[in-house]
Design a protein around this nucleic acid. Structure first.
Length: 738
RNA sequence: GGACUCAUAGCUCAGUUGGUUAGAGCGCUUCUUUUACACAGAAGAGGUCAGAGGUUCGAAUCCUCUUGAGUCCACCA
């Protein structure tokens, strides 16, 4: 053995050895021989992305758990997969297009989908290869992609079931719409940022005699869509203003004055302009008072014909400036509060300001799904490990709004929804879609109808009726056109534990479901874990996993969040090349706690590389000592065994309790500061026999293997000469060292 | 406004159901190239565990309050 462990000489060949021995394959149900199943469904990384350090974190923890349970003799299955990541991927692809001077507008639906498909599959092996470099012992034979035909088939089946259970409805709502990404988002995908904006105090002249009413707004460009002005019932002028009207300061239209509890009498002027089409609060007030609905801003973020000829086609900000100038000119702008501090909703993806816009979308009724999950959590069918996130989860489940599952993108699973397109019923929802998304539909319509007929159909559009559609995976009839929206990616990934097992080897679902552990970062608890619980219980009656282990976010050495703009992003593969996969894995896992962020820098990885070298050299010492065959008085042999057994018990207990960081720390400290610093030194003095030290080494290799699979296997190959593999060895037990 | 989390050595963090002199890594000081390892070893400096009060025979750990930091959610134009 060399005096240093050179990871680059071992890692590739060892991984190949494991694969040749078929060591990662989990038994199929028929051959499991009554073994206890232990299954982890991998959180599928985006198929088109290389791995970042967060992925390295989940690989380290999940591979550690899988190897541990495999050594315990359980039927251990780690199901790998990758995710099509709808919006994320389409966004990345569009950026790529724009670099090439192209835009998605130039492609029809099929071509765009095919181009993204090709793009994703060009890159899809990168992430998988990198996981292998990290030592991931997933069952690659069971790999699944979220757009595999059998997966899509399952997702469609789920949707049909939900539709027939009356859990799906189509509703015209104010949705969070990003005009840049061209799609609506769910409530979870909106990010609020603090900002200073101007607050305009606008005069609304009272019809007839009396003082005008003053209204404060940050969005004067939406005055065109005002349908009322509201005051609180206790407003000092409430009696005077009852049943009166004001003039819209831009259009001159008459607007009723209404009273509503939702108006804060303390804020601004105590009067609120009501714009139901562009503000969630106003939308609700509008519903309560049966107010009309005027849309002033279109899905391209430009002002519509409903405003004024001078404004049509203007983007929001120029329209705002223009409206302010016009108000000033008319003497209807009282004053401006130029530094009004408030929150603005932005797109989590591209950072653009979210426009609340009215649009027909498909929703899932969530109450029937969340209730059984809360009950299951109460009876501890699933335990959530991670710094209070269990409480947050329950809070969310209690307050969740209906889930908008339609997205106006092509990269994903197209909704199996059909509209009858006849001359009398051209009421799909063209007006609510961006043009390029519906190009395909328009083309198809053109084959059937004249432009005039289609335009007439669009013009006569009223609010779409509910149930004005058919759910079917195949075309229900000659005159039907398919919905252009795709499912929210989270709709399909929420079924992943069920679907990835059902579409896998025969019997996998029955044997491995419910799975043992869901391990992921806490930042997708609501997006993914919560919804997997909802869909898992809905589809199977059982929670999809027994334990949820949430790891924290990995920050840089200084505790700063990693971001491309800061330039402090750590590339895990660079560290693997420099210090070895074992060093990185140990650095990520050691002394971390569930749910808490951790700071990982090169120095910590380097320190752990030193540890791999320490293990290597301890083995080297034992090997040299064996060759000497010296006699000893062995006074400390019994003490050694007792202490080692205590350590085995401790580490085992810590792993069973999901104290993963602590287990790694215990292993590290006890190996270094007890086995090396004390036991080996005693052996040098002849106080411990070589045999005992050697047996202890083999035990230690097994204890360390889940954390540092490569170096431990490399040593096993050096010191154990029976051609066995460490990955196949059983976990040590305190009674007789296994 | 609500919720969650945190505050421990110069830095990054552990501290397992409250139990002797509070630990690790990195950094620092001194010594050692001794035949496993200098990617090392030995010895050492460094903490009134944010502050105040309470429970207890006993508190870094449990409770209350204060201060400070972070995260998530809600959102009033």
């Amino acid at each position: 053995m060399d005096s240093r462990y050179e990871h680059s000489q071992f890692e590739t060949t060892i991984y190949k050895k494991w694969q040749e021995a078929n060591a990662f394959a989990a038994p199929e149900a028929s051959s499991a021989d009554g073994k206890k199943p232990f299954c982890i469904i991998m959180p599928p990384p985006n198929a088109n992305d290389p791995l970042h350090v967060g992925h390295a974190m989940f690989v380290s923890i999940e591979d550690m758990l899988i190897r541990y349970h495999r050594m315990l003799g359980e039927a251990s299955l780690w199901v790998p997969g990758t995710d099509h990541a709808g919006i994320e991927t389409q966004y990345v692809f569009e950026k790529k297009l724009s670099k090439e001077g192209k835009s998605r507008f130039q492609f029809d639906r099929e071509t765009l989908y095919q181009s993204i498909w090709d793009y994703v599959h060009e890159n899809s092996s990168v992430a998988l290869d990198q996981m292998k470099q990290l030592g991931a012992s997933a069952d690659w034979e069971r790999y699944k992609f979220t757009l595999d035909p059998d997966v899509v088939d399952q997702v469609l089946t789920t949707f049909e079931k939900m539709a027939s259970d009356n859990l799906i409805y189509r509703g015209e709502r104010l949705v969070n719409y990003c005009v840049k990404c061209g799609t609506a988002y769910s409530e979870l995908e909106v990010k609020y940022v603090e900002r200073d904006d101007a607050l305009y105090y606008v005069t609304y002249p009272l019809e007839g005699d009396g003082e005008p009413l003053m209204v404060a707004t940050v969005r004067p460009e939406t005055i065109f869509a005002d349908v009322a002005v509201a005051i609180h019932p206790t407003h000092p002028r409430a009696a005077e203003l009852k049943d009166r009207q004001v003039r819209n300061p831009l259009t001159g239209a008459l607007l009723p004055i209404i009273t509503d509890e939702a108006v804060d009498p303390e804020f601004g002027t105590g009067a609120l302009k009501i714009t139901p089409a562009h503000d969630p609060t106003d939308y609700e007030i509008g519903q309560r008072h049966n107010l009309p609905f005027i849309q002033a801003i279109g899905f391209d973020g430009r002002l519509l014909e409903t405003t004024s000829p001078d404004y049509v086609g203007l983007k929001v900000m120029p329209a705002r400036e223009k409206s302010v100038a016009e108000l000033k000119e008319k003497g209807l702008l009282d004053h401006i509060d130029s530094a009004y501090h408030h929150n603005v909703s932005t797109c989590y993806r591209c950072g653009s300001v979210i426009e609340p816009l009215p649009m027909a979308q498909f929703f899932i009724r969530v109450k029937p799904l969340t209730k059984p999950v809360l009950a299951a959590l109460d009876r501890q069918e699933t335990t959530v490990h991670g710094a209070g996130h269990d409480k947050i989860l329950k809070h969310w489940l209690t307050n969740l709004h209906d889930w908008n599952i339609s997205r106006q993108i092509v990269w994903g699973i197209r909704m199996p929804i059909w509209y009858e397109a006849t001359k009398t019923n051209l009421t799909i929802k063209f007006i609510t879609k961006q043009q390029e998304v519906v190009t395909g539909l328009i083309d198809e319509l053109l084959q059937r109808y004249s432009i005039e007929e289609i335009e007439a159909g669009l013009q006569s559009l009223s609010a779409p009726k509910e149930a004005d559609y058919v759910v079917s995976r195949t075309k229900p009839g000659e005159n039907y056109l398919q919905e252009t929206d795709t499912f929210d990616t989270w709709f399909s990934s929420s079924q992943w534990p069920v679907v990835s097992l059902k579409t896998n080897k025969p019997g996998d679902f029955d044997y491995y479901y419910p799975t043992a552990v869901m391990e992921t970062a806490y930042d997708i608890l609501m997006f993914w874990v919560m919804r997997m619980m909802m869909m898992g219980v809905y589809l199977t009656g059982k929670m999809p996993f027994k334990d949820v282990y949430l790891h924290g976010l990995v920050r840089d050495e200084k505790g700063q969040k990693m971001s491309k703009s800061k330039g402090n992003v750590v590339n895990p593969l660079t560290l693997v090349e420099k210090y070895g996969a074992d060093a990185l894995r140990m650095a990520l896992v050691m002394s971390t706690t569930a749910g808490h962020d951790s700071a990982v820098g090169e120095m910590k990885v380097k320190g752990m590389r030193n540890f791999t070298n320490k293990v290597w050299n301890a083995a080297r010492f034992v090997q040299m000592k064996q060759a000497e065959s010296v006699t000893t008085d062995q006074v400390h042999d019994e003490e050694f065994t007792t202490y080692l057994n205590r350590t085995i018990t401790l580490i085992t207990q810590q792993l069973n309790d999901f104290k993963i960081g602590l287990a790694a720390e215990t292993a590290h400290n006890e190996f270094w500061h007890w086995y090396c610093d004390i036991a080996i030194e005693q052996c040098k003095k002849g106080e411990i026999s070589t045999t005992v030290l050697f047996e202890g080494l083999k035990t230690w290799l097994r204890l360390l293997h889940p954390f540092m699979p490569f170096v431990t296997e490399a040593i096993w190959q050096e010191v154990v000469t029976d051609n066995s593999l460490l990955i196949h060895q059983s976990w040590p037990s305190a009674n007789g060292n296994g």
